Amino acid sequence: MPNLLYLHGFNSSSRSAKAEVLRDYLNDQRPDWQLIAPQLSSTPAACWAQLTRLVAEQKIRACVGSSLGGFFATLLSEKVAIPSVLVNPAVTPAMLLSQALGEHTNPYTGETYILNQTHIEELVQLQPSSISVERYLVLMTSGDEVLDYRQAENFYRGARQCVVPGGDHLFTMFEQYLPEMFSFYDLYHADEQTDTG
C-alpha cells in the first residue's frame, strides 16, 4: 500500500483540519493509500533532518504540503522524485518568518520554542534554486491573507496550478480538491511506469 505524507504548516499540527479531512477521505474513498502525518519539528534544520530520516525508513509515494509544509514538500519532491500537492505553499519562508522572530507556542501541542536568526539562515540554506515542475499540483487562493499567491504562481510556473478566487490561507475548500489531487498522483505514477517501461 503506497504511503501519502502530509506536512502541516508553521505552528500547526498533524491533527489540523486539513489532515483530518484527508484522513477521512482516505478511509472512505481511497483505502488503497495509507496516510503518514508526522508532527513536524518546530525549527527548520531539525524538521528537514526528521523528514530525511522518515523518507529513508518509509516508502513515500506522494506528498501533500500546506504553507510551510509546502516548502518542505518541495524539498522532498526534489530529493526523492515524488509528486506533491502544495496548498498555499510558502515559497520563501525565510523572508516570511524573519518577521516572526521570538517566542511561539504551538496552539495544538502546547510546545513553546524560540524562533531566532539561526533558524532563518537554515531556511535560506534549504531554499531550492530550481524544481522539476511536472512533480507539482499547486492549489492557491487569491485571498490568502498570509502569503501572496503570485509568488507561488511564478515559482511553480509550468506546474499544474489552480488559483481559487477569494478564499483564505487555510484553504477551507480543501476537501473539494481531493479527487483532483488523487487523479494527479495516479496519473503521475502511471506516466512514471510508462517512462520506465
Score class of each variant (00 low, 15 high):
A56N: 09
G65Y: 02
T112Y: 01
T52C: 08
P93T: 11
M95I: 14
P107W: 06
G110W: 00
G65D: 05
A62V: 07
D148A: 15
S77Q: 03
H119Y: 04
F71C: 06
G102D: 10
R53I: 07
I120N: 01
P83K: 00
R150N: 14
N106S: 05
N27K: 15
S77D: 08
M140L: 15
T109L: 00
V55Y: 09
T109V: 01
V138D: 02
C47L: 10
Y108K: 00
A100Y: 10
Q34D: 09
Q39P: 05
I36A: 02
C47S: 13
A56H: 02
S132H: 09
Y149K: 06
S67D: 03
T141P: 03
W33R: 13
L115Y: 08
E78G: 14
L147S: 13
A90P: 07
R150G: 13
T52L: 05
V87H: 11
M140D: 04
G69R: 00
G110V: 03
D144A: 09
P107C: 06
A90M: 11
A94C: 06
R150C: 11
W48V: 12
V133K: 12
S84P: 05
A49I: 10
T92N: 11
A45Q: 09
R135W: 01
G69F: 01
T74L: 03
S129H: 05
G69D: 00
Q29K: 15
S84V: 10
I114H: 08
L40M: 14
T92S: 09
F71R: 10
Q34G: 04
R53D: 15
L137E: 07
W48I: 12
I82W: 04
V64F: 14
W33S: 13
R30D: 15
M140K: 06
M95E: 07
R61D: 10
I120L: 01
S98Q: 11
A94V: 01
C47E: 04
W48T: 08
A45K: 10
R150W: 12
G110A: 07
V133I: 15
Q99G: 09
L68F: 08
A73M: 08
V146I: 15
T112V: 14
S41N: 14
D148I: 03
L86R: 01
L75V: 10
L115S: 02
A45H: 04
T141W: 00
G143H: 06
Q50L: 03
G65S: 05
A46H: 13
E145Q: 15
